[in-house]
Design a protein around this nucleic acid. Structure first.
Length: 390
DNA sequence: ATAGGGTTAG
């Protein structure tokens, strides 16, 4: 049995105690206990250097859960430590060169920024990690890329992608490529997205259904004339590569054709979907019902919503919204009102747009009283009608 | 998983 004796000089300064603990080679568990206890009881904030020294010890001891907690605290208070100060503290607290343990802490720092909704700081950390020769993991990179896509920070996504591909130290995987392609499609950079598909193939990563679906959706949502033609061509590529269209593919195409005003084509895809044994979902029905409503095919829309109910699907807020719109447009306001009450009863919260639709429907039927009641209800929730349209 | 895991549709 090994016993470590620690000789502490009589002192009341927690910083001195912590330093002595480090220098005496105390167990990381013990150092952490003292760090936590003194932070809590003495309300002390240690210097970034000491904190980083602790983080490094924790990494060496593989105490990752503790690192995660500590980093969460650091990241929440960004006035206390900038990204650059953290890196500086790391290089000054370690005598030797930065090692794998440092990489791991910095990797977890990036993940902490993402968790705390600060992707721009994660991006800064990504750049600095490279300056300091630290290697991030593909998991943290993907988390960062994904949060940058969500924030529509596509320039940063492109920068990261290009740097990683140029330096070839981090090996991107299928998910990484899919995230980058999604980001590019989101801002309409469809050619760049296709280039990424070529890149991934050249490094031996094969596109999957998500890759193709993302690109197809990109073409449906962007581009003017012939956009569905291009989407169709990608679908052909997809199937030829041995990847069959799935639920996402069909839904993307159906919505694409509906938004393009080509209801017949959308219905054809809907048929094909069923022929191939892919089950229609709430998303399928809400796209179609919405499309049919927009182009005045109200009876078909109602028939489809009946079909949906019969298939055992329970409408959600999106499908309710589409069906209510259909009934209002058909001046079957009682039926619409019934559904409106129904969804509220089920605990769903109507959107302002749905109130607008209902109020518009009631007015067009001459039910001024009913319209006023709903208007008041809306006002009581602090919401406002903008424009009433059907 | 040495911690941790990310992507597509209304």
């Amino acid at each position: 049995m090994v016993t470590t004796e620690i000789h502490l000089e009589t002192t009341t300064n927690p910083t001195t105690v912590l330093q002595q603990l480090f220098n005496s080679g105390a167990d990381t568990d013990l150092v952490l206990s003292y760090f936590d206890w003194s932070t809590r009881e003495c309300k002390i904030t240690y210097t970034l250097e000491l904190t980083c020294r602790l983080l490094h010890s924790l990494a060496a001891a593989k105490m990752y859960w503790n690192i995660k907690n500590l980093l969460n605290g650091l990241v929440k208070d960004e006035s206390f430590c900038s990204v650059s100060s953290i890196f500086r503290a790391f290089s000054s607290c370690s005598g030797d060169r930065l090692c794998d343990d440092h990489s791991r802490v910095i990797d977890m720092l990036v993940a902490a920024y993402v968790r705390n909704k600060k992707p721009h700081l994660g991006f800064e950390a990504f750049k600095r990690a490279d300056d300091y020769g630290l290697k991030l993991s593909v998991v943290s990179c993907n988390q960062l890329l994904n949060s940058l896509v969500k924030e529509s920070e596509i320039e940063s996504v492109e920068y990261m992608y290009k740097e990683i591909m140029r330096k070839r130290k981090i090996e991107l995987n299928l998910v990484s490529f899919n995230i980058v392609i999604h980001g590019l499609c989101k801002v309409g950079k469809l050619n760049e997205a296709s280039d990424v598909i070529e890149d991934m193939k050249s490094v031996g990563v094969s596109p999957d259904a998500i890759t193709y679906n993302t690109l197809i959706d990109g073409h449906c949502k962007k581009g003017k004339t012939g956009k569905l033609y291009r989407a169709d061509a990608i679908l052909k590529d997809m199937v030829e590569s041995g990847i069959p269209a799935d639920e996402f593919t069909f839904n993307i195409l159906i919505d694409g054709f509906c938004k393009d005003g080509n209801i017949l084509a959308a219905l054809k895809v809907f048929d094909e979907m069923q022929t191939q044994g892919v089950k229609a979902s709430l998303i399928t029905y809400s796209s179609l019902i919405h499309g049919l409503c927009t182009y005045g095919k109200l009876d078909e829309a109602i028939a489809l919503s009946d079909q949906m109910m019969c298939s055992g699907l329970k409408p959600d807020i999106f499908t309710y919204s589409a069906i209510i719109k259909v009934f209002c447009k058909k001046k079957m306001v009682d039926k619409a009102r019934e559904l409106f009450d129904d969804l509220v009863k089920k605990g769903m919260v109507p959107t302002t747009l749905m109130y607008n639709t209902m109020i518009g429907g009631l007015y067009s039927k001459g039910d001024t009283e009913g319209a006023k009641r709903l208007k008041n209800e809306l006002a009581n929730k602090g919401m406002k009608i903008d424009n009433i349209s059907l």
